[in-house]
Nucleic acid binder design. Structure first.
Length: 270
DNA sequence: AAATTCTCCTGAAGGC
DNA sequence: TGCCTTCAGGAGAATT
Protein backbone atom coordinates (compact mmCIF):
# COMPACT_ATOMS: atom_id res chain seq x y z
CA UNK A 1 0.00 0.00 0.00
CA UNK A 2 2.14 2.81 -1.26
CA UNK A 3 2.21 6.05 0.65
CA UNK A 4 4.68 8.85 0.09
CA UNK A 5 7.81 6.93 1.17
CA UNK A 6 6.94 3.99 -1.05
CA UNK A 7 6.28 6.23 -4.04
CA UNK A 8 9.51 8.10 -3.38
CA UNK A 9 11.38 4.80 -3.10
CA UNK A 10 9.91 3.74 -6.41
CA UNK A 11 10.90 7.07 -7.96
CA UNK A 12 14.48 6.73 -6.82
CA UNK A 13 14.57 3.15 -8.06
CA UNK A 14 13.37 3.84 -11.57
CA UNK A 15 14.66 7.36 -12.24
CA UNK A 16 18.25 6.35 -13.09
CA UNK A 17 16.92 3.99 -15.75
CA UNK A 18 14.67 6.59 -17.34
CA UNK A 19 16.21 10.05 -17.12
CA UNK A 20 17.73 11.05 -20.43
CA UNK A 21 16.47 7.92 -22.16
CA UNK A 22 14.32 7.73 -25.25
CA UNK A 23 10.95 6.01 -25.07
CA UNK A 24 10.42 3.44 -27.81
CA UNK A 25 6.72 2.91 -27.17
CA UNK A 26 3.99 1.86 -24.80
CA UNK A 27 2.17 -1.45 -24.63
CA UNK A 28 -1.26 -1.30 -23.03
CA UNK A 29 -2.00 -4.88 -22.18
CA UNK A 30 -5.01 -4.08 -20.01
CA UNK A 31 -6.02 -0.45 -19.83
CA UNK A 32 -8.72 -0.97 -17.23
CA UNK A 33 -7.36 0.93 -14.25
CA UNK A 34 -9.14 3.42 -12.04
CA UNK A 35 -9.46 5.49 -15.18
CA UNK A 36 -8.88 3.97 -18.62
CA UNK A 37 -5.28 4.26 -19.76
CA UNK A 38 -5.22 6.71 -22.70
CA UNK A 39 -5.60 4.60 -25.83
CA UNK A 40 -3.20 6.82 -27.76
CA UNK A 41 -0.45 6.62 -25.14
CA UNK A 42 1.86 4.76 -27.52
CA UNK A 43 1.58 7.35 -30.29
CA UNK A 44 1.93 10.19 -27.84
CA UNK A 45 5.12 9.14 -26.17
CA UNK A 46 6.95 7.11 -28.79
CA UNK A 47 10.20 8.89 -29.54
CA UNK A 48 9.94 11.18 -26.54
CA UNK A 49 12.97 11.65 -24.33
CA UNK A 50 12.52 11.51 -20.58
CA UNK A 51 13.90 14.51 -18.78
CA UNK A 52 13.20 13.77 -15.12
CA UNK A 53 11.09 11.50 -12.95
CA UNK A 54 9.47 13.61 -10.26
CA UNK A 55 6.96 13.01 -7.50
CA UNK A 56 4.02 15.19 -6.48
CA UNK A 57 2.06 13.78 -3.55
CA UNK A 58 1.72 10.08 -4.40
CA UNK A 59 1.86 10.72 -8.13
CA UNK A 60 4.92 9.98 -10.21
CA UNK A 61 5.59 12.39 -13.06
CA UNK A 62 7.56 11.03 -16.00
CA UNK A 63 8.43 14.25 -17.74
CA UNK A 64 9.41 14.12 -21.39
CA UNK A 65 9.92 16.61 -24.19
CA UNK A 66 6.47 15.71 -25.53
CA UNK A 67 4.42 15.57 -22.38
CA UNK A 68 4.19 14.01 -18.95
CA UNK A 69 2.93 10.63 -17.86
CA UNK A 70 1.20 10.90 -14.48
CA UNK A 71 1.23 7.57 -12.68
CA UNK A 72 -0.51 6.66 -9.43
CA UNK A 73 0.12 3.31 -7.77
CA UNK A 74 -3.21 3.17 -5.95
CA UNK A 75 -3.24 0.40 -3.39
CA UNK A 76 -1.35 -2.34 -5.11
CA UNK A 77 0.38 -0.79 -8.09
CA UNK A 78 4.08 -1.23 -8.71
CA UNK A 79 6.61 -0.05 -11.25
CA UNK A 80 9.58 -2.23 -12.07
CA UNK A 81 12.46 -1.93 -14.45
CA UNK A 82 12.89 -5.20 -16.28
CA UNK A 83 15.42 -6.42 -18.82
CA UNK A 84 14.10 -7.38 -22.22
CA UNK A 85 12.32 -9.43 -23.32
CA UNK A 86 9.88 -9.60 -20.44
CA UNK A 87 7.15 -12.21 -20.27
CA UNK A 88 3.88 -10.65 -19.21
CA UNK A 89 2.04 -12.08 -16.24
CA UNK A 90 -1.28 -11.39 -14.56
CA UNK A 91 -2.05 -7.72 -13.84
CA UNK A 92 0.83 -6.46 -15.97
CA UNK A 93 -1.24 -3.61 -17.33
CA UNK A 94 1.22 -1.34 -19.09
CA UNK A 95 4.82 -1.46 -20.35
CA UNK A 96 6.83 1.60 -21.27
CA UNK A 97 9.59 0.50 -23.62
CA UNK A 98 12.87 2.36 -23.31
CA UNK A 99 16.31 2.10 -24.79
CA UNK A 100 17.55 0.44 -21.63
CA UNK A 101 14.75 -1.92 -20.61
CA UNK A 102 11.08 -1.97 -19.85
CA UNK A 103 9.20 -0.02 -17.20
CA UNK A 104 6.34 -2.30 -16.22
CA UNK A 105 3.20 -1.22 -14.37
CA UNK A 106 1.52 -4.05 -12.46
CA UNK A 107 -1.62 -3.53 -10.39
CA UNK A 108 -3.78 -6.42 -9.15
CA UNK A 109 -6.49 -4.27 -7.59
CA UNK A 110 -6.52 -1.66 -10.35
CA UNK A 111 -6.86 1.30 -7.99
CA UNK A 112 -3.96 3.02 -9.72
CA UNK A 113 -3.93 5.08 -12.89
CA UNK A 114 -1.88 6.33 -15.82
CA UNK A 115 -2.59 9.74 -17.37
CA UNK A 116 -0.86 11.67 -20.13
CA UNK A 117 -0.78 15.44 -20.30
CA UNK A 118 0.88 17.84 -22.69
CA UNK A 119 0.28 20.83 -20.43
CA UNK A 120 1.88 21.76 -17.13
CA UNK A 121 1.11 18.77 -14.90
CA UNK A 122 0.76 21.09 -11.90
CA UNK A 123 -2.47 22.31 -13.47
CA UNK A 124 -3.82 18.83 -14.13
CA UNK A 125 -7.14 18.15 -12.46
CA UNK A 126 -5.57 15.44 -10.32
CA UNK A 127 -2.85 17.71 -8.98
CA UNK A 128 -4.38 21.18 -8.97
CA UNK A 129 -6.08 21.06 -5.56
CA UNK A 130 -3.37 19.32 -3.58
CA UNK A 131 -1.93 20.67 -0.36
CA UNK A 132 1.77 21.18 0.36
CA UNK A 133 4.42 18.50 0.31
CA UNK A 134 5.18 17.40 3.89
CA UNK A 135 8.91 17.41 3.16
CA UNK A 136 8.89 20.95 1.81
CA UNK A 137 9.50 24.19 3.73
CA UNK A 138 5.84 25.13 3.11
CA UNK A 139 4.80 22.57 5.66
CA UNK A 140 5.24 23.27 9.35
CA UNK A 141 3.31 23.58 12.58
CA UNK A 142 2.20 27.10 11.79
CA UNK A 143 0.63 26.01 8.54
CA UNK A 144 -0.99 22.94 10.06
CA UNK A 145 -2.36 24.97 12.93
CA UNK A 146 -3.76 27.61 10.58
CA UNK A 147 -5.65 25.13 8.40
CA UNK A 148 -7.05 23.31 11.42
CA UNK A 149 -8.85 26.20 13.13
CA UNK A 150 -12.53 25.49 13.69
CA UNK A 151 -12.23 22.10 12.06
CA UNK A 152 -14.18 19.42 13.91
CA UNK A 153 -12.79 16.53 11.92
CA UNK A 154 -10.55 14.09 13.80
CA UNK A 155 -6.90 15.03 13.50
CA UNK A 156 -6.04 11.64 11.99
CA UNK A 157 -8.63 12.03 9.24
CA UNK A 158 -7.48 15.63 8.77
CA UNK A 159 -3.90 14.50 8.13
CA UNK A 160 -5.07 12.06 5.49
CA UNK A 161 -6.89 14.82 3.60
CA UNK A 162 -4.72 15.61 0.58
CA UNK A 163 -5.97 19.18 0.45
CA UNK A 164 -4.38 19.72 3.87
CA UNK A 165 -1.13 17.85 3.29
CA UNK A 166 -0.25 15.22 0.72
CA UNK A 167 1.33 11.81 1.01
CA UNK A 168 0.27 10.95 4.55
CA UNK A 169 -1.72 7.75 4.29
CA UNK A 170 -3.16 5.41 6.84
CA UNK A 171 0.08 3.94 8.13
CA UNK A 172 2.05 7.13 8.61
CA UNK A 173 -0.88 9.09 10.04
CA UNK A 174 -1.05 6.65 12.95
CA UNK A 175 2.72 6.60 13.32
CA UNK A 176 3.13 10.38 13.29
CA UNK A 177 0.36 10.88 15.86
CA UNK A 178 1.99 8.37 18.16
CA UNK A 179 5.34 10.11 17.87
CA UNK A 180 3.64 13.42 18.66
CA UNK A 181 1.58 12.02 21.56
CA UNK A 182 -1.70 13.15 20.05
CA UNK A 183 -4.84 11.02 20.20
CA UNK A 184 -6.11 10.24 16.68
CA UNK A 185 -9.71 11.04 17.62
CA UNK A 186 -8.91 14.54 18.89
CA UNK A 187 -10.53 17.30 16.87
CA UNK A 188 -8.11 19.00 14.52
CA UNK A 189 -9.24 22.36 15.82
CA UNK A 190 -8.36 21.36 19.36
CA UNK A 191 -4.68 20.72 18.85
CA UNK A 192 -2.77 23.66 20.28
CA UNK A 193 0.01 25.36 18.38
CA UNK A 194 2.99 23.82 20.26
CA UNK A 195 1.60 20.34 19.68
CA UNK A 196 1.05 21.16 16.01
CA UNK A 197 4.73 22.05 15.78
CA UNK A 198 5.56 18.66 17.23
CA UNK A 199 3.06 16.94 14.93
CA UNK A 200 4.44 18.56 11.79
CA UNK A 201 7.95 17.59 12.84
CA UNK A 202 6.78 14.04 13.57
CA UNK A 203 5.21 13.72 10.13
CA UNK A 204 8.38 14.92 8.46
CA UNK A 205 10.52 12.63 10.60
CA UNK A 206 8.50 9.46 10.11
CA UNK A 207 8.35 9.98 6.35
CA UNK A 208 12.09 10.62 6.16
CA UNK A 209 12.82 7.59 8.32
CA UNK A 210 10.61 5.44 6.10
CA UNK A 211 12.24 6.68 2.91
CA UNK A 212 15.63 5.92 4.42
CA UNK A 213 14.43 2.35 5.09
CA UNK A 214 13.18 1.94 1.53
CA UNK A 215 9.51 2.19 2.49
CA UNK A 216 7.16 -0.09 4.34
CA UNK A 217 6.35 -3.51 2.93
CA UNK A 218 3.20 -4.78 4.61
CA UNK A 219 2.09 -7.18 1.99
CA UNK A 220 2.83 -6.15 -1.50
CA UNK A 221 5.17 -3.19 -1.78
CA UNK A 222 8.41 -3.62 -3.68
CA UNK A 223 10.58 -0.77 -4.90
CA UNK A 224 11.72 -0.17 -8.44
CA UNK A 225 14.53 -2.61 -7.88
CA UNK A 226 12.20 -5.34 -6.62
CA UNK A 227 13.42 -5.03 -3.05
CA UNK A 228 10.91 -4.83 -0.20
CA UNK A 229 10.98 -1.92 2.23
CA UNK A 230 12.18 -2.49 5.74
CA UNK A 231 10.30 0.20 7.64
CA UNK A 232 7.64 -2.27 8.82
CA UNK A 233 10.12 -3.26 11.51
CA UNK A 234 10.14 0.30 12.77
CA UNK A 235 6.39 0.81 13.03
CA UNK A 236 5.52 1.79 16.59
CA UNK A 237 1.76 1.29 16.59
CA UNK A 238 0.49 0.36 13.12
CA UNK A 239 -0.78 -3.23 13.10
CA UNK A 240 0.33 -3.78 16.71
CA UNK A 241 -3.05 -4.07 18.47
CA UNK A 242 -2.59 -5.67 21.88
CA UNK A 243 1.19 -5.44 21.74
CA UNK A 244 3.08 -3.23 24.15
CA UNK A 245 3.56 0.44 23.32
CA UNK A 246 7.26 0.86 22.69
CA UNK A 247 7.27 3.99 24.85
CA UNK A 248 5.27 2.95 27.92
CA UNK A 249 4.31 -0.70 27.59
CA UNK A 250 0.56 -0.10 27.54
CA UNK A 251 -1.20 -2.41 25.05
CA UNK A 252 -1.78 -0.69 21.70
CA UNK A 253 -5.44 -0.15 20.80
CA UNK A 254 -7.14 0.33 17.49
CA UNK A 255 -10.36 1.95 16.32
CA UNK A 256 -11.89 2.22 12.88
CA UNK A 257 -12.10 5.78 11.58
CA UNK A 258 -13.82 6.42 8.25
CA UNK A 259 -13.29 2.79 7.43
CA UNK A 260 -9.57 2.82 8.23
CA UNK A 261 -7.86 0.96 11.02
CA UNK A 262 -6.28 3.49 13.36
CA UNK A 263 -3.71 2.46 15.94
CA UNK A 264 -2.71 4.37 19.04
CA UNK A 265 -1.44 4.12 22.59
CA UNK A 266 -4.22 5.12 25.00
CA UNK A 267 -1.67 6.28 27.56
CA UNK A 268 0.85 8.19 25.46
CA UNK A 269 -1.66 9.84 23.17
CA UNK A 270 -4.10 12.46 24.43
C1' DA B 1 -19.15 24.45 3.48
C1' DA B 2 -17.74 20.70 6.06
C1' DA B 3 -18.06 16.09 7.22
C1' DT B 4 -19.30 11.51 6.22
C1' DT B 5 -20.34 7.63 3.33
C1' DC B 6 -19.98 5.19 -0.93
C1' DT B 7 -17.43 3.16 -4.64
C1' DC B 8 -14.04 0.89 -7.40
C1' DC B 9 -11.12 -4.09 -7.11
C1' DT B 10 -8.94 -8.70 -5.95
C1' DG B 11 -5.82 -11.33 -2.99
C1' DA B 12 -5.14 -12.64 1.63
C1' DA B 13 -6.84 -14.13 5.83
C1' DG B 14 -10.24 -15.85 8.96
C1' DG B 15 -14.22 -18.85 10.19
C1' DC B 16 -16.75 -22.97 10.29
C1' DT C 1 -9.19 -29.31 3.24
C1' DG C 2 -12.27 -26.16 1.12
C1' DC C 3 -15.61 -23.05 0.46
C1' DC C 4 -17.51 -19.24 2.07
C1' DT C 5 -17.26 -14.22 4.16
C1' DT C 6 -14.67 -10.37 5.55
C1' DC C 7 -11.07 -7.18 5.24
C1' DA C 8 -7.61 -4.03 3.33
C1' DG C 9 -7.50 0.98 1.61
C1' DG C 10 -6.31 5.86 -2.13
C1' DA C 11 -9.11 9.14 -3.33
C1' DG C 12 -12.83 11.01 -6.22
C1' DA C 13 -17.91 11.07 -6.17
C1' DA C 14 -22.03 11.25 -3.90
C1' DT C 15 -24.62 12.28 0.03
C1' DT C 16 -25.94 14.34 4.38
Amino acid sequence: MPELPEVETTRRGIAPWLAGRRLLGAVIRDGRLRWPVPADLNERLTGATVSTVDRRAKYLLLRTDRGTAIVHLGMTGSLRILPEPPTAGPHDHVDLLTESGVLRYNDPRRFGSVHWTESDPAGHVLLAGLGPEPLSPDFDGGYLHAVSRRRNVAIKVHLMNSRIVVGVGNIYASEALHRAGIHPLRSAGRVARPRMDLLAASITAVLEDAIRAGGTTIRDFYGGDGQPGWFAQSLRVYGRTGEACLSCGTPVKHVVMTGRATYYCPRCQR
